[in-house]
Simulated assay, not measured.
Amino acid sequence: MSQHHVVIGAGPVGRHIAELLAERGDRVTVATRSGRDTGLRGVTHVALDASDAAALTRVTEGATALYNCANPGNYTQWEQVWPPLATSLLTTAERTGAVYAITGNLYPYGPVDGPMRPDLPDAATDHKGILRARLWADARAAHEAGRIRAVEVRAADYVGPGTGANGHITRVLPAALQGKAVSMIGRTNLPHSFTEVLDVARTLVAAADDHGSHGRTWMVPSNEPRSQRQVVTEMLASAGKPPVTVRRLPAGMLRALGLVSPMMREISDMSYQWTAPYVIDDSESRARFGIEPTPWDEVCRRTVAGLRA
């Protein structure tokens, strides 16, 4: 029997979720501020301010799941944008009974010593990590109180089609594809986990469907860690292009730039991710959901094709 799902956001994760759900025959509504059409057959699009709980509730009434794939693009505005948006999503989930499925990231953990696992505490001290940790804590508390059903999946840095300028790798790939040298944050030779956006969508859909998985966080199955230099080189190779020079942008330089640029200050706060190994342990998710990451050579091809498109 066809079910109804509401997806907030039409970025790479939201679009992939909508596509997966539509392909299996479910009804899907994608809500964005602009109401822009994703081009997906059978998917309904609505223009909506998701921080308006009354409007969001009207759209979500009767839905099986509500997917939070929102991604406020301006780092400097997170404290203003996220709290009312998250409150509206929680309120809507409680009013409608829809499963609240959250697209999370690794920020809540803060700097770590060893692989990140779901059982690690959310110990971030930077304001973005604290904010994201609080958003999940609020959802988990509502779940434990029996007010909603919630689950969050956490992904490493995105690769794959649609990531564009917001992806750490894809922001430099256009220049690299033209044979130009590129600059990457921090150390370029350390192991780092990267997650294909399709796999984020696959895991979130599986988690929303699996009621036994609710009330906790899960890691998105991802390929073996690779250094920044290695990823750029392998992406280029998939396009038949030779390696380029990958320069290091030191954390100290980011801090200096942050004295005059609010955006660079925000990026500098997260530079710890690139000064030590930053990898995930996704073994629980693989075992629970039976999901393996998209093969890396395919990830490379999809990423480059997405940029060229």
Rank of each mutant, 00 (worst) to 15 (best):
M1G: 13
S2V: 15
H5Q: 04
V6L: 02
A10D: 12
V13C: 05
G14S: 15
H16M: 03
E19W: 10
L21K: 12
L21R: 13
G25K: 12
G25C: 02
R27I: 08
V28K: 11
T29N: 01
T32W: 09
R33V: 02
D37K: 14
V46M: 02
L48W: 00
L48I: 01
A50R: 03
T60G: 07
T60K: 09
L66M: 02
N68Q: 13
C69Y: 12
C69V: 10
N71R: 01
P72D: 05
Y75A: 06
Q77C: 11
Q77Y: 01
Q77I: 10
E79N: 01
L85E: 04
A86I: 13
T91W: 11
T91K: 13
E94T: 10
V99S: 06
Y100I: 08
P108Q: 10
G110A: 01
G110F: 06
P111Y: 03
V112W: 04
G114Q: 07
L120R: 12
A123W: 00
K128N: 07
K128W: 08
L131K: 09
L131Y: 01
R134P: 02
R140D: 09
E144T: 12
A145E: 13
A150S: 15
E152V: 04
Y158G: 05
Y158P: 04
G160V: 10
T163H: 06
N166C: 12
L173I: 06
A175I: 12
A176F: 09
G179E: 15
A181H: 07
I185K: 04
L190T: 07
V200K: 03
A206F: 09
D210W: 09
S213G: 14
S213A: 15
G215Q: 00
R216S: 00
T217K: 00
P225S: 06
P225G: 04
S227F: 05
Q228H: 10
V231L: 10
V231C: 06
V231H: 06
V232C: 11
T233R: 14
S238A: 14
T245D: 14
T245F: 11
T245P: 06
R248Q: 05
L254G: 03
L257G: 15
L259R: 13
V260M: 15
S261M: 10
P262L: 05
R265I: 07
E266V: 06
I267D: 06
I267A: 08
D269P: 05
M270E: 10
S271P: 06
Y272V: 00
Y272E: 14
T275E: 12
A276P: 01
D282K: 01
S283Y: 02
S283L: 04
S285W: 03
I291C: 00
T294I: 02
E298Y: 04
V299M: 08
R301N: 03
L307V: 09
R308A: 01
